[in-house]
């Protein structure tokens, strides 16, 4: 599979250059440390715990996921990719890479949260798992297409969070609500509306991304 070959190339490149992993790891450590220092001995409520969990995820994603396309543009290798693969192959390869990165990053964040925050006790683990999977897919797809859009722009660092915020807001808000439900122990049936929103968000983002990418990728 061509997209898988592109993913392997990106993974190998990432292991050598550590473009994204270092910035992601640093951001996760710094963000969680700042939260821990600022709350001190206080026990924060479930609302705040769920909100802060997704705040860390959102900003970590902002610090690392744009690299998928930005690094190609900065190194001048975008043309190389255009000459060896079709746009759909490039998007699929980059999406697989960002999915792997998002799942790894959010697993680390979840484990750190479970170990360090008293309020992060999941009463409904299955619901959390569904939120985690659907939320990560939405985050990876949106981040990948936004990264492709901003890669050719001048001030990438500013543009990425500015463009991501309105696009990711529905996903983040619904995921916060679902995470809160899984901490509260709300049943799966009572959360079905939010799950449907996140699932629809993922489907819409995947289809529009594949439709738009051809126009974004070619000059």
């Amino acid at each position: 599979m061509k997209a898988y070959a592109l993913f392997r190339k990106d993974l190998h490149s990432e292991l050598r250059t550590r473009y994204a992993v270092n910035s992601l790891a640093m951001f996760i450590i710094v963000a969680i440390s700042v939260i821990l220092f600022s709350i001190g001995q206080e026990r924060i409520n479930e609302n705040l715990t769920a909100g802060l969990y997704w705040v860390v995820i959102f900003f970590s994603a902002m610090s690392g996921l744009a690299r998928a396309f930005v690094s190609e543009e900065e190194r001048g290798t975008s043309l190389t990719l255009q000459l060896i693969a079709s746009p759909s192959t490039v998007f699929s390869g980059k999406l697989i890479f960002n999915l792997a990165l998002v799942f790894a990053m959010n697993t680390v964040i979840s484990l750190l949260y479970a170990a360090l925050f008293e309020g992060f006790v999941l009463q409904n683990f299955v619901l959390f798992l569904i939120t985690f999977v659907l939320g990560n897919i939405g985050l990876a797809v949106s981040s990948t297409i936004i990264a492709a859009i901003i890669a050719k722009a001048g001030s990438k660092g500013t543009l990425y969070p500015v463009l991501s915020f309105p696009i990711l807001l529905p996903l983040i808000l619904t995921s916060v609500s679902l995470t809160l439900n899984s901490i509260n122990g709300t049943s799966f049936e009572d959360s079905i509306f939010e799950i449907a929103i996140v699932a629809c968000y993922d489907i819409i983002m995947i289809s529009t991304s594949y439709m738009l990418f051809d126009f974004i990728w070619k000059d």
Partner: peptide
Amino acid sequence: VSPYLFLYDEFTAQENLSYTADIRK
């Protein structure tokens, strides 16, 4: 071939060509 085409600096020549062949399937 052009002066504004760049290959991956972090890979060897052989790796660049192998990955290119894999991506081209």
